[in-house]
Amino acid sequence: MGELDGRVACVTGGTRGIGRAIAEAFLAEGAKVVINGRSPEKGEQAISEIEAGENLHFISGDVTDQAVCEGLVDQTVEHFGKIDIMVNNAGGGGDAAPLVDMSDEIWNFVLNWNLNHPMWCMRRALKYMIPQEWGRIINISSMYGKTVIPTNSHYVTTKHGLNGLTKVVAHEVGAMGITVNALCPGGILTDVMNTDGRVAAEALGMEFQEFLDMMAAPSAIKRLNEVEDVSLVAVLLASEAGAGISGSLINVDGGQVPY
């Protein structure tokens, strides 16, 4: 008997990293899961590695595209008959630079990736969740949704924006059986970190390892977080017992952000 028996979930950026861990944790608790990612190849690989049979389905698409986000939600409902849990996990940075040198191109890309994608997916998912009076929306924010790192105005600003969006929507649907929360993880060595983190380290004039150390040092645990830390809390929020938690920005950062 799983905590998510009978539930249908959709996880953006679900082939690797945090999204993959959440998908696996949801499957282990009995949910049916759609994972999304840009690369059909990585999707197929994830499907074959996770080995969840018909309970797992891959839909490819780039969530920086509005039509892809809305189609993803609709296709989840077409495939599994409904949508109960929407995890807006895709996101990242890249081309880190001081604001004065920040290009329109990367600014707009990150705006779509980190803020507009959750907005598009959430708005679409609510069309299904409001009539059924049950839903769980989980936005994967970041400790940088509460704090700051130079050269990452695009990332920090969009994660702060996502935290604000989370709180507003929570209040709009709070009496309808739908919860909306954000998880704010500390540094985790995911594939995104391995690419965008290296770029950010370079922009800060640091070695990558120094950059990782810089992210772990202010924590209580003095080490990076792990993807399973985030999926543990995601399962709780998605479960029946999570009904009383909404509009919360929950730190999963080893004690780093003090508020």
Binding site: L232, G242, G247, S248, N251
Partner: peptide
């Protein structure tokens, strides 16, 4: 709802969640 969070925080798997002020306040 409060007990579910206490259980989660008490598990071995929660080793990296600390110093957290965990809300169970319905927003």
């Amino acid at each position: 709802e409060v007990a579910a969070v206490a259980l989660m925080l008490s598990r071995d798997e929660a080793r990296n969640i600390t110093g957290c002020l965990f809300p169970v306040d319905g927003g």
